[in-house]
Computed example of a mutant assay.
Amino acid sequence: MMDLRVVLTLISLSSFLHTFQTQESKTPDVTDLSFRNMDFAMNLYRRISRHHDNNIVFSPLSVSVSLATLLLAAGGSTRAQIAGGLNLASLDDDDDELIPQLFQDLLSNISLIQQNTALFVDHRFDLEQVFRNQVKRFFGADIISVEFGKTDVSRDVINDYISRKTGGKVREMVKSVEPLTQMMLINTVFFKGDWQRPFDPNSTEAGRFYVDKYNIVQAPLMFAEDKFFTTVDSDVGARVLRLPYRGGASLLIVLPDPSVDYTAIEDELTADRIFRWMKNLKPVKMEVHVPKFQLEQRYDMRELLPHLGISSVFLDSANLTGLSKDVGVKVSQVMHTAVMDVDETGTTAASVTSAGITTYSLPATFRVDRPFFFFLYHEASHSLLFMGRVIDPTQNSQ
């Protein structure tokens, strides 16, 4: 039996989106892909959130790109499950290359991030030439020959690659290598963004952050007074704030009302709702208090993906004949690591409606002092790059 190990490495930094399209084009395009991928992201988020009550950060883009790469090699029910789990089944009916072509178009439009795909292939593994050509063509993949039998050497080669591609944010993604591994698929996403209007570090003060009814922590709260785009969603009981970065990226913060449990909003997260928040944003002069936070999370996607209908790829019966004609090729592991760092200058992580200015005699206040959600999205492509929640900004990992 031959195992194919797949590793997804994700580093989140920041991204921004604000316009959207409510009707699907007759011919699927990047906007359609991004909308569908956002609903996939919400489904994946809910699966992650059911495992614990801690902070969450992950990159829907990196997970999707890695699965789309496998789609090039998959057939039969294995392919159908991957496309269905990604919420892209309707795009996979007639043209096998439509989905990878759309991802290629998407990635070429997102210049704010450094995205890399790499295949580490055992020197004895017979990788199909068609697959080699396709992953290079659509995803610009690096194909690197290693000798997995030399476990320590191959591990170090892979970790060095990941560290270089993530600006040193992820140094030891791969803890160990099984000598029978035939291939590792690595996808990294890295972005470093500066706020359009940086926070003054001298204005950052310790403040109370209400983790829940019984737990209060002291967290460094950044402060700024300016015109910010904001909206209110009274249906779910939440306020929304957009913090822009330079170069077309923004961080969207969704703050549940004090009387609303954040878990109730999780069930309402959809692409439609998030796009509606974007549409309804209006500029308001206000005081903003936002906690600094550092997040690092690691997920075993093999535990999560079957809940989204993607299970065949892990079984002995997996159809990955496009990858190799060898019998019994399957995915043995899918790991995802995400890192995010938000401070006064901007964000480092390893993802506008025109209106009149509303002013008040005293500025309105947006104080983020309780659990909140964040979404990082790209304006031109409408693509959600990173998302998560902050339950306790003083805790950086689980």
Rank of each mutant, 00 (worst) to 15 (best):
G247Y: 00
S108R: 12
K136S: 12
N280C: 03
N202W: 07
L362T: 00
E303L: 10
V390E: 06
G356I: 09
L295P: 04
V254F: 00
G237M: 01
E266L: 10
W195G: 11
L323Q: 05
A89R: 09
L255P: 10
T22E: 11
N319Y: 04
I216P: 05
R171F: 12
D233F: 04
Q398G: 13
R47D: 08
T117P: 03
V334F: 09
D343A: 09
A74C: 02
T78I: 05
V331K: 08
L107Q: 12
L255Q: 02
P244Q: 00
M184P: 04
D126S: 10
T263V: 10
N159D: 13
I265M: 07
A141W: 05
L112G: 13
F386P: 01
P306I: 11
P60G: 03
V254G: 03
D343P: 02
G207I: 11
S203G: 10
S397A: 14
R276D: 08
Q101R: 13
M340V: 09
S49A: 15
P220E: 04
D96C: 03
E205P: 00
V30Y: 02
L72Y: 01
S14R: 08
D212L: 09
A338I: 11
A80N: 09
Y377A: 11
L251W: 02
M278R: 04
E128V: 03
H289L: 10
G84Q: 09
L251Q: 06
Y262R: 05
E303I: 05
I310S: 06
M222D: 01
L180T: 07
S311H: 14
L13E: 05
F40T: 10
S383P: 00
P220Y: 01
D326S: 12
F314Y: 12
V290W: 01
L86D: 05
D235I: 10
N37K: 04
S250Y: 01
R367F: 00
V189Q: 05
K165S: 14
S34W: 01
T19R: 11
G237D: 02
Y161S: 11
N187Q: 08
T9V: 13
E296Y: 13
S203L: 15
F191D: 06
P283G: 06
T348K: 13
M301Q: 08
I11M: 12
D29M: 04
M183R: 02
E205Q: 14
R132A: 07
K169Y: 09
G167E: 09
T151E: 15
D96F: 02
F223H: 15
G237R: 08
N319D: 15
L281T: 02
Q395Y: 03
T321M: 09
R246G: 06
G388P: 03
D142Q: 05
D261M: 03
